[in-house]
Each structure stands twice: as structure tokens, then as C-alpha cells.
Design a protein around this nucleic acid. Structure first.
Lengths: 218, 218
DNA sequence: CAAAAAAGTGAGTGATTACTCACTTTTAAC
DNA sequence: GTTAAAAGTGAGTAATCACTCACTTTTTTG
């Protein structure tokens, strides 16, 4: 996909009529619930109280309707994530790497919970669409990887983290974080995340072993 | 779904004609690649060099064809997993919890790599089908959760693991392991897993912090 | 307010879908 | 070797699919 199409899809979002908003709202619900392939445009039209023609007038094809849901989400959420990592999560109070990760998790849980349905659409469709993967990868690297890399290196310098290659650490961290979100928001859709679970996740994951020395002294 | 249907689908697998084997083989490939909803029975028939009638003669509906792929995989693989956890992974040489988890990861990577395509079908479809989730959950709990729980408790006794509730530890472990498999085998389909990555995963994940005391003494 | 542009409609279209059934071919049992 | 059962066929079917287009309604603009 060209950058032009990407931008035009974003731009199209700016001035939406009530009917368009309703189409998107219903499409998100249905795609999140039943999946893109199992949802017909006729069903979207019916539930959005709109004629099928209106959907195609605005979005051209069913595929472009999907993209006009997913792309703005990606384009908006990734830079926001990058900003918040530094401004809200990594403050003066963040002493340890675990504290940083727990803060990051809390911050993102709040975000993904607000955008739960779009996130579900995103995860369910990115599995199938190679184009979508390729489209999103550079945005992801640019906004997220770079920022987190810096944090990892910062904590390595502070002696908080073992001196493994940053790239590998990044893959490990994304694996662990990604799975937290996907399992809780997509796989177990009605699972409610307790504050305790969030607080304990990284302390256990990053440091689950009982410290032998502190054990001896207690 | 009833236990009867479950068993009958398993039993049907026992005596398969060449055509049936070919149907399953092609169906797995197509479902893994394009997804269940995006694959037509006509396409399966064509590639398997079989008439569409043959598919429906044996499997009745497209849905039952999917189930006759997924259910035997689940029913075979889960008990195998449970057995192997104890016989192959948890040997006398397994001193630490990290060693156990790394052994488990290695063992399962080998397994999922052999069954890569079925695993992809499984992951891609379980997201959509609530029935499938409910069907599989008890098998999962019976075969996996119980076994891993015992290992966790064993290592807690040995003083290797912090004394968090076993249930919560299990959820954390499954999150981390599951994501490893899903990200490597489903999301990044052509990602090749290096031995180094596997060896370093749990040592980093479970103990990523630089030990402050050993640092001082070095 | 008139003209142009944009938004919205819904019946209609050809392609594709999962599935059926009357039929033929192959296999197995005695 | 006959027969019955099982396996396999492929043309046919109704339903559904994404999408179109000639048209009406609403909004915007000068």
C-alpha cells in the first residue's frame, strides 16, 4: 500500500457524517465479535440503519472499510504510546526496571481497555493479512522499538539489567507484554484484570526466583 | 458439543482412505494459510483432486471438517505434553526452575514445529469459536494445568520460587509460554528460532535483573 | 434562492458459497 | 463370483456475497 492511500484513509476520518460514524461503530463491533470474513456488508448496513450503497459510496470496498478502522488506530496509538512511555511511565519515581514495566503495563491496559474492540479487530486480522503486517511494522519500529530500546539501555547502565543484547531483550519484552494484552483482551474476552495481577506480573516474571541470600538471612 | 461427537470425530480418523488423507492434508494447509472462513470447500476439493461430494460424504459439513482436524490434535497433543513434562523434561538433572522451563520450551518447540500447520489452524480458529474454547478448556486443565501446578509447588518447596499463589503463577507461566509459541509460529511464520534465543529466554525472563550482590563482589 | 456537490438509497447483478442427490465405481464379505 | 456396503462423483441448487448504478434527498456554496 502506498503512503498516499494510508494518508487518504486517515484524512477521510476527519469529516464524518452521522451515518458514517454509525457504520464504523457497527463494523468495529461485528468485526471484533465475528471476524472480518464472517461479517457481511448487508449485516453492517442493516444494524447501522443505512443502505448498503452508503457503505460502498464512502469506503469503496469491504477491505478499505477494515483498513479505515485499523490504520487510524495504529497511526494514533503508536505515537501516543511512545510519548506516554517517557512522559507518564518513566518519571523520576521510576527506580527499577520492574517499576518501569509495571507502569508501562498499567498505562497500556488502560489504553487497550478503552480501545478494546478495535484492538480485537486488529489482532484478529493482522494474523491473516501479510500486507497489514508489512504496513504496520515500520510504524511499530519507529515509534515503539526505538523508545523502549533507550529505556533498556538506560537500565543496563544503571546496573539494573543483565548485559544481554538490546535487540534480543526487546524481542523478549514484546513477547511478554504482547501476550499479556492479547491473552487478556482477545483470548479471554471477559477476563477482568485485577490490580494485584498487574502489580505482581513483572515482579514475578522478571524476578520470580526466591533470592537465596535474603532467604538465608531471614 | 457432546462427548459422543467428540469421540466419533476422533474414531473417524482411525480408518482413512487415501482421498480422506489428502482432503485433510490440503484442508490443513489452506486453513493454516488463509484461514477457515477464507477457504472454500471447492478449493479444497480441487487441490486434493477429489470431488466436493467426497468431502461432504465424509465430513458432513465444513465445520465438522475443521473439528476433525483440531480435535484429534488437541486430544493427542495435550496428554503427550503432560507425559513428556515429567518423563523427559523433569529429570534428575533438572536442578533449577529455569532449567525446567527451558527444557519445557525446547521440548514443545520441537513438538509445535512438527505440527506447525495444525497449530496455526488451532490458534487462528480458537479466537473465533467460543464452542471450541469451552470444549478444549477442560482437557487443558486436566492435562496441563494439574501437571505444571505440581512442578511449581515442587520448586516452591525447594526454595527456587517465590511463594506466590500457584494459580496465579500458572497464569503467568502460560501467558509467557503461550506467547512464545504463538508469536514465533503464528505471527512471525517464517521466524527461525535460534537455540541461543531459547536458552536465554527464561534466564532473562525469570531473572533478568543483574544480581546486585554478585556485581559488588566482582 | 438556485445550482452544484455531496450523501444516501435499494433494487439488481454475476459470482461464489456450502451443501445435495441420483448415480457410478470400488472394496469387502460370504 | 455375486452381492451388499462403502467410497466417490459432478451437475445442480438456493442462499448469500460484495458491489453497482440510476436515482432521490440533503447540504453547501456563491
Amino acid at each position: 500500500m502506498t503512503q498516499d492511500l494510508f494518508d487518504s484513509l486517515i484524512a477521510a476520518q476527519k469529516t464524518k457524517t452521522e451515518k458514517q460514524k454509525k457504520i464504523i461503530e457497527i463494523a468495529i463491533k461485528l468485526f471484533a465479535d465475528k471476524g472480518f470474513a464472517n461479517t457481511s456488508t448487508a449485516e453492517i448496513a442493516k444494524l447501522a440503519k443505512v443502505s448498503e450503497g452508503t457503505i460502498f459510496k464512502h469506503y469503496g470496498t469491504k477491505d478499505k472499510l477494515l483498513l479505515s478502522i485499523i490504520l487510524p488506530f495504529v497511526k494514533d496509538s503508536l505515537p501516543t504510546m511512545a510519548t506516554e512511555v517517557f512522559s507518564e511511565v518513566l518519571t523520576e519515581d521510576t527506580k527499577t526496571f520492574e517499576q518501569f514495566l509495571t507502569g508501562f503495563l498499567k498505562n497500556r491496559i488502560e489504553f487497550f481497555d478503552r480501545n478494546k474492540e478495535i484492538f480485537r479487530v486488529f489482532v484478529k486480522e493482522i494474523i491473516y493479512k501479510d500486507e497489514l503486517k508489512k504496513e504496520i511494522a515500520p510504524h511499530f519500529i519507529k515509534n515503539i522499538s526505538l523508545q523502549i530500546s533507550r529505556v533498556v539501555e538506560e537500565f543496563k547502565l544503571r546496573g539494573e539489567l543483565k548485559d544481554k543484547p538490546t535487540d534480543q531483550v526487546l524481542i523478549y519484552l514484546m513477547t511478554v507484554c504482547g501476550s499479556f494484552f492479547v491473552s487478556r483482551f482477545v483470548l479471554f474476552e471477559n477476563y477482568s484484570i485485577s490490580n494485584e495481577e498487574v502489580e505482581n506480573f513483572f515482579p514475578f516474571v522478571m524476578d520470580g526466583r526466591r533470592n537465596p541470600l535474603s532467604e538465608v538471612s531471614s
